[in-house]
């Protein structure tokens, strides 16, 4: 992946930066330039919480080429207390024991680890809350 693509998304992927519409309060992740609820164009930066609840998930057994070494792996959508939802991999888990509603903690991990020459990409993955 060309470095500029990774670099540009760092605020969202590294620090979980989202934006709140200054007029209606709707939260966007990733941030947007116009609010789809009220049409306002000014936003305030917020950071997403470190925990969410699992809304749905699957176990990918036939991945795209850049994830072939990692299969099978779980991926899911979590919902934060502020109502926002986010997709990410679920790691450090027993694939057979995942359940909708499970509490998940976000951890900073490497994503797309397949090559040995490109720029590394990092983002948050979900880990079932265990402490």
């Amino acid at each position: 992946m060309f470095p500029s693509r990774i670099w540009r998304e760092m605020p969202q992927r590294y620090r979980l930066e989202a934006s709140t519409c200054k007029k209606c309060g709707k939260i966007f992740y990733p941030p947007r330039l116009i609010c789809d609820k009220c049409g306002y164009r000014k936003f305030e930066k917020i950071n997403l919480p470190e925990e969410g609840k699992l809304k749905t998930f699957t176990v990918i057994r036939t991945p795209a080429s850049q994830f072939s070494d990692e299969a099978p792996y779980a991926i899911g959508i979590i919902r934060f207390s502020n109502g926002l939802q986010m997709m990410g991999q679920i790691v450090d888990c027993d694939l057979e024991k995942l359940k909708i509603g499970q509490a998940m903690r976000l951890e900073f991990r490497r994503v797309q680890t397949h090559d040995t020459h490109g720029v590394l990409s990092y983002a948050h993955k979900f880990v079932p809350k265990w402490y």
Binding site: D69, E70, Q89, V91, D92, E107, F108, R109, R110, V111, T113, L120, Y122, K125
Partner: peptide
């Protein structure tokens, strides 16, 4: 470490 864990990810978690 799993393949998605390296010195940087461990450092970020410890730093947090």
């Amino acid at each position: 470490p799993t393949p998605d864990v390296d010195t940087i990810t461990l450092s970020v978690a410890a730093a947090r």
